[in-house]
Protein backbone atom coordinates (compact mmCIF):
# COMPACT_ATOMS: atom_id res chain seq x y z
CA UNK A 1 0.00 0.00 0.00
CA UNK A 2 1.27 3.43 -0.86
CA UNK A 3 2.16 5.63 2.07
CA UNK A 4 -0.39 8.32 2.72
CA UNK A 5 0.97 11.63 1.64
CA UNK A 6 0.72 13.97 4.60
CA UNK A 7 0.83 17.08 2.45
CA UNK A 8 -1.94 15.79 0.25
CA UNK A 9 -4.15 15.11 3.27
CA UNK A 10 -3.53 18.62 4.52
CA UNK A 11 -4.40 20.04 1.10
CA UNK A 12 -7.66 18.09 0.95
CA UNK A 13 -8.54 19.30 4.43
CA UNK A 14 -8.17 22.95 3.46
CA UNK A 15 -10.01 22.38 0.19
CA UNK A 16 -12.96 20.72 1.88
CA UNK A 17 -13.18 23.37 4.54
CA UNK A 18 -13.05 25.99 1.79
CA UNK A 19 -15.85 24.28 -0.09
CA UNK A 20 -18.01 24.18 3.02
CA UNK A 21 -17.49 27.89 3.66
CA UNK A 22 -18.05 28.68 -0.02
CA UNK A 23 -21.41 26.94 0.06
CA UNK A 24 -22.31 29.03 3.09
CA UNK A 25 -21.38 32.10 1.01
CA UNK A 26 -18.53 32.93 3.43
CA UNK A 27 -16.24 33.86 0.60
CA UNK A 28 -13.54 35.60 2.65
CA UNK A 29 -12.98 32.61 4.92
CA UNK A 30 -13.34 30.20 2.00
CA UNK A 31 -10.69 32.13 0.07
CA UNK A 32 -8.22 31.75 2.96
CA UNK A 33 -8.66 27.98 2.89
CA UNK A 34 -8.39 27.65 -0.88
CA UNK A 35 -5.27 29.80 -0.81
CA UNK A 36 -3.70 27.46 1.75
CA UNK A 37 -4.62 24.41 -0.35
CA UNK A 38 -3.20 26.11 -3.41
CA UNK A 39 0.05 26.96 -1.58
CA UNK A 40 0.61 23.26 -0.83
CA UNK A 41 -0.21 22.19 -4.39
CA UNK A 42 0.28 25.09 -6.82
CA UNK A 43 -1.07 22.94 -9.63
CA UNK A 44 -4.35 22.23 -7.93
CA UNK A 45 -6.90 23.24 -10.58
CA UNK A 46 -10.06 23.10 -8.44
CA UNK A 47 -8.55 25.34 -5.75
CA UNK A 48 -7.52 27.83 -8.42
CA UNK A 49 -11.04 28.00 -9.83
CA UNK A 50 -12.55 28.52 -6.38
CA UNK A 51 -9.99 31.22 -5.58
CA UNK A 52 -11.13 33.11 -8.68
CA UNK A 53 -14.78 32.66 -7.78
CA UNK A 54 -14.26 33.82 -4.18
CA UNK A 55 -12.38 36.92 -5.33
CA UNK A 56 -15.17 37.68 -7.76
CA UNK A 57 -17.91 37.40 -5.15
CA UNK A 58 -15.94 39.55 -2.71
CA UNK A 59 -15.92 42.32 -5.31
CA UNK A 60 -19.41 41.69 -6.64
CA UNK A 61 -21.52 40.38 -3.77
CA UNK A 62 -24.23 37.83 -4.43
CA UNK A 63 -27.82 39.03 -4.46
CA UNK A 64 -30.80 37.82 -2.49
CA UNK A 65 -31.98 35.60 -5.34
CA UNK A 66 -28.66 33.88 -5.91
CA UNK A 67 -26.17 32.54 -3.40
CA UNK A 68 -23.44 32.20 -6.01
CA UNK A 69 -23.43 28.41 -5.92
CA UNK A 70 -24.18 26.51 -9.07
CA UNK A 71 -25.61 23.37 -7.75
CA UNK A 72 -28.41 21.08 -8.67
CA UNK A 73 -31.01 21.65 -6.06
CA UNK A 74 -33.54 18.90 -6.40
CA UNK A 75 -36.64 19.08 -4.30
Amino acid sequence: MAAINKEKLECVKFYEEGLKLYREAKFKEALENFNKAFEIYPNDGPSKIFIERCKHFLKYPVSDDWDGVFEMKTK
Binding site: F50, E52, H56, K59, F70
Partner: peptide, 15 residues
Protein backbone atom coordinates in the same frame (compact mmCIF):
# COMPACT_ATOMS: atom_id res chain seq x y z
CA UNK B 1 -12.12 40.00 -14.18
CA UNK B 2 -11.83 37.74 -17.20
CA UNK B 3 -10.35 34.90 -15.14
CA UNK B 4 -12.91 35.28 -12.41
CA UNK B 5 -15.86 35.30 -14.77
CA UNK B 6 -14.43 32.35 -16.64
CA UNK B 7 -14.25 30.43 -13.35
CA UNK B 8 -17.94 31.14 -12.82
CA UNK B 9 -18.78 30.04 -16.34
CA UNK B 10 -16.89 26.79 -15.76
CA UNK B 11 -19.11 25.83 -12.86
CA UNK B 12 -22.18 26.50 -14.95
CA UNK B 13 -20.72 24.35 -17.69
CA UNK B 14 -20.08 21.56 -15.15
CA UNK B 15 -23.71 21.57 -14.17
Amino acid sequence: DYNEMLALLNSLEDE
